[in-house]
Design a protein around this nucleic acid. Structure first.
Lengths: 117, 117
DNA sequence: CCTATAGTTGGATCGTTGTCAAACAATAAG
DNA sequence: CTTATTGTTTGACAACGATCCAACTATAGG
């Protein structure tokens, strides 16, 4: 079991976090992580609709921005949200984003999702 | 006095707001607006260190994302934060970003700004 | 060693973006 | 009308980014 390098909490930059979360695919990953706690890259990338290499690039972007943690275990790689670090550095930010997301992220996933005639 | 077109509150998209705020220059503009309330483009762009046309592009990006309002008055154009709309759409988001900013945005503007030997 | 699995890396492509400079538009004042 | 002031638009350019595909690494199991 190996942990991969992540930025220290105090080195996490606001603009980089915002940038990381401004991509719909990455925001989707973060939302899923916030619901499921910890997942393998395969699980996280399953319903994203992008190539696995694309997903891998997004994991790296999120990790380098300080948003997620990665730890390798055998041939699986588990990723998880860095909730504590984000809350310590930018109190309330992650919470406001996560509570705003379900309907805000994707039209067609909330109240207005009655794809009738 | 003319108001310029802005997206309706319910049309403001989270990823676009995050994207707009992920640029240091635009975040700086937003911080200044949060402190000063309302400014002309000239005032807002003075200390940004970018060409005025660049600043103008940033104003447009912020306006189209739903972050700021613009109103023309004579030959001046006043811009201001769309606090109410943002708070209604994404409660807590703007607050958490603004309270996180001063030291997080720019190293060299906070405690560690003693440019000694 | 061979094969399958899980994920990364490196190119190639294509669209987006941040920047400046120069030209432009619009208002105000002489 | 001419000039000054404010800001926008357009063009050019370099940098970045998202994506896919193919090749690669690394672990696990036969």
């Amino acid at each position: 079991m190996r942990l991969l390098p992540h930025p220290a909490t105090e080195d996490i930059q606001l603009t980089e976090v915002l940038r990381a979360l401004s991509d719909p695919v990455r925001l989707e990953i973060v939302i899923r992580l916030s619901e499921c706690g910890e997942m393998t890259c395969g699980e996280a990338g399953d319903a994203l609709g992008v190539h696995k290499s694309t997903a891998s690039h997004h994991y790296r972007a999120l990790r380098e921005a300080g948003v997620i943690m990665s730890k390798q275990e055998g041939r699986l790689k588990y990723i998880s949200l860095r909730r504590d670090a984000l809350d310590a550095r930018f109190p309330g930010l992650l919470g406001s984003i996560l509570s705003a997301t379900p309907s805000a992220l994707r039209p067609g996933f909330g109240i207005e999702a009655h794809a009738g005639s």
